[in-house]
């Protein structure tokens, strides 16, 4: 979806403001939201792509709030959407009926190491990659209403395949509950002037990771 989350190249957000000696969390509730969100992922409540899509579905005025506020909105949304709590329970602030059996079981302290590692998204395949390193490609001009990881700022632009990352879970399918549908994943490099025009920084090159369905061959 062409949402507010797709921010590459937008103007108007002001300066970047690094914070000296920044704490990991600025308030206890931030850590609590992160922990609860990790728990729901670990027990199989929803997958990472469904989680990202949940944030993208927030109305822009809610999206443009502090980071863990968005996570809080997404957590409530996920609990209700995927059947782990009722809206009435969230309103009441307590459970009103027993929980749903989580696909991967209850989350206990011995599983903490597992959630502090990133997941595994590479999948075995019998298919052959359509593109090779050095091939010239164009990012397709796609505007799906659902979740996608092809940012707007590269759509329609020409680039070069730089790396091949194997076959991986396709977010566009996984986020929509349509299965993993693994696709070949590439790093595609774009010249800054191709993306931003003749006045762009001539020393700039930008790459994105692009799944094969996002790309077409350039001859």
């Amino acid at each position: 979806m062409n949402g507010i989350h797709d921010m590459g190249g937008m103007d108007g957000f002001g300066a970047v403001e690094p914070e000296e000696h920044e704490p990991v969390f600025h308030a206890r509730w931030e850590g609590a939201v992160l922990a609860a969100t990790r728990v729901m992922g670990a027990i199989g409540g929803w997958n990472i792509d469904q989680g990202r899509y949940g944030i993208e579905l927030l109305p822009p005025n809610l999206y443009l709030t502090p980071y863990y506020r968005r996570w809080l909105e997404r957590l409530e949304w996920g609990l209700v959407t995927y059947g782990y709590a009722g809206a009435d329970e969230i309103a009441a602030g307590r459970a009103l009926c027993p929980g749903k059996a989580p696909p991967r079981g209850r989350f206990t302290v011995d599983k903490v190491d597992r959630v502090t590692r990133r997941g595994t998204f590479t999948r075995e395949t019998n298919s052959t990659a359509k593109f090779a390193i050095g091939d010239r490609v164009r990012a397709r001009n796609l505007h799906p209403k659902g979740h996608t990881r092809l940012p707007r700022y590269v759509r329609g632009h020409a680039g070069v395949i730089e790396r091949l990352h194997g076959c991986q879970v396709f977010p566009d399918s996984a986020a929509m509950g349509q299965g993993e549908n693994p696709q070949w994943l590439y790093t595609v490099r774009f010249d800054g002037r191709e993306l931003w025009g003749a006045d762009a920084d001539p020393t700039l090159a930008v790459s994105v990771e692009a799944f094969e369905p996002y790309l077409e061959a350039l001859t």
């Binding site: 590459g8 940012p151 700039l204 790459s207 692009a210």
Partner: peptide, 9 residues
Amino acid sequence: IRVWDSTAE
């Protein structure tokens, strides 16, 4: 300047 936009995993 090479910018890596982390759009996948």
